[in-house]
Design a protein around this nucleic acid. Structure first.
Lengths: 226, 226
DNA sequence: CGGTACTTTGATTTCCTTCAATCACCGTGG
DNA sequence: CCACGGTGATTGAAGGAAATCAAAGTACCG
């Protein structure tokens, strides 16, 4: 936890607008890149030149094992930052699961500024802390929960992070295989679990399995085990 | 459960505003707390007053679910910081798995200094990035690997983080239940897997199952799948 | 339409968990 | 010194949750 090592994704800080706004300033000048579904933002081994902020869509940040198994570390939604904290090469890959837009920031410049701008450095710190909390939460889910608990927890976190206030319907914007690789399950198990939740009356699947209506949030919360 | 914080006065150093070594400076004045095996450094829900640096022993940082299941997020070894990046209350618990010593730093003071000291802020940022990388690596292990791969990966990471240069023997300094809760397995599976590794001639168990000699590192690396 | 990519559902297998018993280690006190 | 109780580790047998294998169903797009 000390020592110099590399690192990657980070969730965006809430747009405070106050304090040091070096980050926001640079955002305004950054170019936007459009991505089709399945297109990569960067790959493991790529030189790390930019930090990205998701503007639209969903970006899956993941790690692949030599034999092809894949663990998705996080889905980045609009407002989230990815690519922070890396020295040298990327150790993770990032891929759009749906058509997306990202804003590109020169990484070197950002960190050079942070060396003298405590406000910006603190902002980066907070952003990474938030990302760490999310990763820990996923670790608990994957390490301790059953399939139905994992899926319930995933739906709830998606709801919390992307649904507008009060909306009960969430847009998956990703395939079953993405959910499976996030939760450490297979696509078959994800599919079976979703149908089980539907039969229980907790959720409803709409529009060719891409949209999910959370009919019974309390029950879903209970199933997720907090 | 609240740990007694009787001996924790951090002697009054003033914020020097000096760059890179504010952290080390404060370390020098911080008091050391001794912990017995199983004693808690802090618990979920405790007010977060300090950041700790492990001086000796092993501290397990973990999260418990309402029904008692436990996921260890990380083992902190000498040199590691714990308790960073928390606002308000602790959401995790930290417990010594063996007799340990930690150095206590006032969290509020540390972060107040970071507000104007970019060097310190950047240091905190790097430390959290480091921790994030470790957590992600564990997530990949727990989400994708089989029991034998998990145990092999654990032994290797323990070796990397704690073994002196060239040493092939590692000291577990924790129970099977701690390893199980880290890897998302049961104590029985951990035990069986260790004996299987012993039968394969990859490791050797010494001193009442608390020390492990890694006889065949290349094979272990292969088993861990990178 | 026809083809592709993705999802769902079913049958079977596997790995890990659960339950249960035994064993080993260690400090204590008779 | 050794019987003892307690904690933790190991081992075995049985059961179960999810993986794997296989096939059919469904949406999408040229």
């Amino acid at each position: 936890m000390l020592a110099a090592h590399t690192d990657e994704t980070v969730r965006g800080t809430r747009a405070t607008g106050q304090e040091s706004n070096s980050l926001d300033q640079r955002m305004a000048y950054a170019t936007v890149r459009r991505l089709r579904a399945k297109e990569h933002v960067f790959c493991e081994g790529d030189e790390r030149e930019h930090v990205f902020r998701v503007e639209e869509g969903v970006i899956a940040v993941y790690k692949t094992l030599p034999d092809g198994r894949r663990q998705i570390i996080d889905f980045a939604y609009p407002g989230d930052l990815i690519g922070l904290g890396v020295i040298g090469e990327h150790v993770l890959s990032a891929q759009a699961t749906a058509p997306s837009k990202v804003r590109c920031l020169a990484a070197a410049a950002l960190e050079r500024i942070a060396e003298t701008d405590a406000g910006l450095a603190l902002k980066l710190y907070k952003a990474v802390c938030q990302e760490l909390a999310a990763t820990r939460s996923l670790l608990v889910t994957v390490g301790q929960r059953s399939a139905i608990e994992r899926v319930a927890a995933f739906l709830l976190s998606l709801h919390r992070r992307t649904a507008p206030e009060g909306a009960a319907t969430i847009n998956l914007a990703m395939r079953r295989s993405d959910i499976a690789d996030l939760l450490g399950l297979t696509i078959e198990t994800v599919s079976r679990t979703l149908t089980k939740l539907r039969c229980m009356g907790v959720i409803d699947l709409e529009q060719g399995a891409t949209r999910v209506r959370l009919c019974d949030l309390p029950h879903l919360l209970e199933l997720a085990n907090e």
